[in-house]
Design a protein around this nucleic acid. Structure first.
Lengths: 344, 344
DNA sequence: GGGTCTGATTAAAACGTTACAACACCCCCG
DNA sequence: CGGGGGTGTTGTAACGTTTTAATCAGACCC
């Protein structure tokens, strides 16, 4: 039977509270509370009785009440970038996070992290108003002001990407130096002699890692290389394509491209096509990917996989351990690239 | 000065509460509470004094306390699909939602909605434990059990996609019938004579809309058409590609493909390439897209844009109006396709 | 001068939980 | 027999709101 259109949720059977369980078992509310949190001060037998009754009654603690009392929110918040170098980044990261958090009682909230605006403001409100127990964010900077503030206030967080602060903090990262080196080696192995790279903005830590891997691998091999000066990884796809086209039409164009992400790779491929270049013939690409999209691109190109879903799960796991009081210095995880070279 | 590694957040200056504002203004807590909610029972002058003091002190109401007292959570929850036909679906939708919700005091939480498992269970826990004030979800079915349950209990929600229930409810949808018709017309205009379509699973409402638009447009034009029987839109990309390849190698293969999403379109393109077909020459595609990815695919193909970010904002807006008590029957919005045909 | 009415404010209770301090009770020791 | 130390349990008070019912000062009326 459909409800009247504007009715609010019914208050069917009243939700069971500690009180309900206490009345059912004959113990006091305090005892029930302690029993359910497995407090050793409560007799083993009592704990079992209470647990059984709670299960039978379908008791589940009220988040608001607990939060009001303890100050802990049971909420973990992700600062969400509008754009990313990977197409499915957000979906993968969030799925990874919620996989790892399922059944823990923590919930994930998202808050938009517009790059144009002050990145600190949103962190600030979360801290001031105690809106979460921990924070996750990506695109970490070498001396990220968010990290600085969070460390100063002792607020738990896990960053995607390292920093250069001396105080340790939890992070999860991908070995972008290893990726860049592997990409360079692969392109050299395919006979390429002039390599090109489009970097993210300088302030991000992973920019430095990428640059180091790319430049040092090229130098060691004594091979010509260049970093595209006109655009960054976050430039609009059309601008990236335009920059690559321009360079293709000038003297000594590159014949090997290291692409840090799907958007850059597709833009480069389109620029190649627009200037009459054939991938695999006139130039080669190695792209970092996070989705299966390159399985569908012809001709197939060499890729290196960054597992964003695993990144998400790991970030969640580290956050939980941080909230459990573990030493932050131990809560780090570096993912290695897994290469996927095409034959021939 | 860095804190000891395992310290929890400092309790610096205590957060201002109603009490703080009351003491500062000389009014009682109740008065302050009422004044801040602009209760007409409070004198205008008092309201102004209190508002000024609250602003100066940086008072912001405690979510947990308010939630405990009122039962309203100030939380809107999105049921998140792991996969989607669009690459950037999740990111776009969430950004749209949080755009529209910024400054409203509502926060967005996400919860994974694994297709393999019981879709109802997660809704059930949200209802039972009052974990949110409203729900958003996608991939709506014709007689979606979630919609049924939510309508029965009067719980606010906005679905992405319509249903066939007679009781009205808030929804946002894309006109997939119009999309399919437009795609068919476009392919016919390019001289194609045998059209093919890959549909989502039957249970989704939009499957019926797509089928109707496709079939009726083809019939009206008296043109040969088929619906790929072996795979659905949600089949793994590799299977979709394999199905298209198989069909390409059999008798009378299609020369026009209507692709309901980026994954299907790229899979079809790859299958075309693998079987020696050239898009634009041996066959044409019209793809529904939500990201700029097709700007980078060569040769360029015809696309129809579904604005997922606007979908997200609209869903949020409708939810707020629903929570405001507006008539659900009025809270619907159908987005029209915007076609983007290539020249020639 | 007593009664009713209106407008503005307030005290007290409640939401469901956890922390603190206290309380019984029993056993054992001097 | 008085006291010390467990062990297990409990009443009370808070956390910061909103709601219900009450209070209070005037004003107005007869």
């Amino acid at each position: 039977m459909p409800p009247s259109p504007d009715s609010l949720p019914d208050v069917k059977a009243r939700k069971p509270t500690l009180r309900t369980v206490a009345d059912a078992t004959g113990f006091a509310v305090t005892t029930v509370s302690r029993a359910l949190s497995d407090d050793p001060r409560i007799a083993k037998s009592t704990r079992e009785t209470v647990a059984a009754a709670a299960r039978k009654l379908g008791y589940v603690p009220d988040r608001a009440a607990r939060r009001l009392r303890t100050g802990r929110t049971q909420v973990l918040t992700v600062l969400l970038n509008a754009e990313h170098e990977f197409l499915g980044f957000t979906a993968e990261l969030l799925n990874g996070l919620s996989d790892a958090l399922r059944g823990t009682g923590y919930s994930v909230t998202i808050v938009a992290d517009r790059i144009g605006e002050d990145r600190m403001e949103v962190v600030d409100t979360i801290l001031r108003n105690r809106l979460a127990d921990a924070l996750f964010f990506t695109r970490t900077e070498a001396f990220d002001p968010r990290v600085r503030l969070l460390m100063e206030t002792g607020f738990p967080f896990v960053s995607h990407g390292r920093t250069e602060f001396t105080t340790p903090h939890p992070w999860v990262d991908f070995d972008n130096t290893a990726f860049a080196r592997a990409a360079v080696e692969r392109l050299i192995a395919r006979g390429r002699t002039r390599l090109s790279l489009i970097l993210p903005e300088d302030r991000f830590t992973f920019t430095q890692h990428l640059r180091y891997g790319f430049v040092s691998a090229c130098r060691e091999a004594g091979i010509a290389h260049e970093i595209e000066p006109r655009v960054t990884l976050d430039s609009p796809a059309a601008e990236i394509a335009e920059a690559v086209r321009r360079r293709r039409r000038s003297a000594d164009p590159p014949d090997g491209y290291v692409c840090v992400g799907e958007v850059a790779a597709l833009s480069t491929l389109s620029a190649l096509a627009d200037t009459g270049g054939r991938p695999g013939v006139d130039a080669d690409l190695v792209a970092k990917r996070a989705s299966p999209i390159f399985d569908m691109i012809r001709p197939r190109i060499d890729t290196v996989f960054e597992d964003i879903r695993a990144t998400g799960s790991t970030m969640a796991e580290l956050a939980l351990r941080r909230l459990d009081g573990e030493d932050p210095a131990a809560l780090t995880r570096l993912f290695s690239p897994s290469c996927d070279w095409q034959q021939g």
